[in-house]
Design a protein around this nucleic acid. Structure first.
Lengths: 216, 216
DNA sequence: ACAAAGAAACCGACTTGACGGTTTGTTTCT
DNA sequence: AGAAACAAACCGTCAAGTCGGTTTCTTTGT
């Protein structure tokens, strides 16, 4: 018990906040925004509601903080993927697989729960726009680096990236009403093939980049 | 005065229900699901809350009914588009424009408000799945008719349609956080060009979109 | 034809429960 | 001792649903 009671205030505070944020994200994913009450969050975090209100002035504060953390973490994930791409531990296909998984999993679902809310909530939308922009900037940098080397034009680079993201995002939304994993694999693979095809015209070198390690 | 007081029960009932459903859809779009209360709906519909509860046993009943109407109407719109496509009043580009508009407007937004809810609500999801399936079936028929003439395989037809829908859907979601109409026009046009390319390539044969990479 | 009885549409006050936020009290660190 | 972290009882608000009563239409008996 000393291990617990011998912590600094800062540590106690940080741990509680961390638990609250994690509980919030879990709740949002598992229960949905409509059922995510402060009571439930506190309960899942294993702290009292009093502790919750002590650290967050309002429910909205807590939720936006949780959302920002989610997207920051995702941005960090993307950054790590970029490293692995540079180190050639993965190829473009592997990168796309990882990206698609993100858009078909928790990240998209939790974000989606609030995109609708953001449409009517100026402050929430503002914060989401900023952090989502950063996420996209990270992706853009990777994409640019990868395809520029292959000789693709800037216009094509931007278009193909955004098409890819919109496609994956649309697939993610569809998963709610269509539970059919092989279908999504088919779409993803078809897109990977098509992407190669599209860029072959402007960047002939791209083919090698994507087919080196993909044949398994 | 007689025109109002000399209506049959059936007519009164139908008009009230109609007003309630329309008010519900308006509310959902303009205020969002979170702010759509039965009070607000009744107020906007110009009927009493008592009338609302008389016609709909629960709020969920009303909302699912409204959603079903929305999607049925959209299905009817698609059907009309198919007619115009057959009559050659519009071409594939025009069809895609109309489709894209649907996915960037009220239809997607209102649906989106409930996709997240449907994830945690079995009965709502069931009803949505059914009516969305019908919507897709309608699109599938048109697509099939149009692309079959070009000699595309069933697999390719399915893939290109679903890619198109996921792309537009993903674009629609993005509109909430990125207000940039020219950007969406660029993406849409790029995709139209892409589809056209596929139609032209190899004469009547559409490329092996799905077999290039996924053929394993 | 028409009045009475019945059914359906409609109304608005009331009940109940839950949620977010506030306040007051207790423990833990500095 | 004093401040911060934590806990729990409390309060105001609000939404959904219930219910008794009223109005409007429909059916039926004469």
């Amino acid at each position: 018990m000393q291990a617990k009671s011998r912590r600094t205030q800062e540590e106690r505070s940080a741990e509680t906040r961390q638990k609250l944020i994690q509980a919030t994200l879990d709740c949002l994913y598992e229960e949905g925004a409509a059922r995510t009450t402060t009571n439930l969050i506190a309960e899942r975090a294993g702290v009292s509601r009093g502790a919750l209100t002590h650290h967050y002035a309002s429910k909205e504060d807590l939720i936006t903080d949780a959302l920002v953390k989610l997207l920051r973490d995702a941005t960090a994930d993307i950054r790590r993927l970029a490293e692995r791409l540079r180190a050639e531990e993965i190829d473009l296909d592997g990168f796309l697989d990882a990206l698609c998984d993100m858009f078909l999993g928790h990240l998209l679902m939790v974000t989606l729960e609030h995109v609708t809310e953001a449409r009517h909530n100026e402050s929430l939308r503002g914060r989401m726009v900023d952090v989502v922009k950063q996420f996209h900037a990270e992706l853009d940098a990777i994409w640019r680096e990868f395809f520029h080397a292959a000789g693709a034009s800037d216009r094509d680079i931007e278009t193909t990236l955004n098409m890819t993201l919109c496609l994956f995002r649309g697939m993610g939304v569809q998963t709610v009403l269509r539970d059919d994993p092989p279908y999504y694999v088919r779409l993803r693979d078809a897109w990977k093939a098509q992407l190669r095809e599209m860029l072959k015209r402007d960047g002939p070198k791209i083919v090698q980049l994507t087919s080196t390690n993909a044949g398994r």
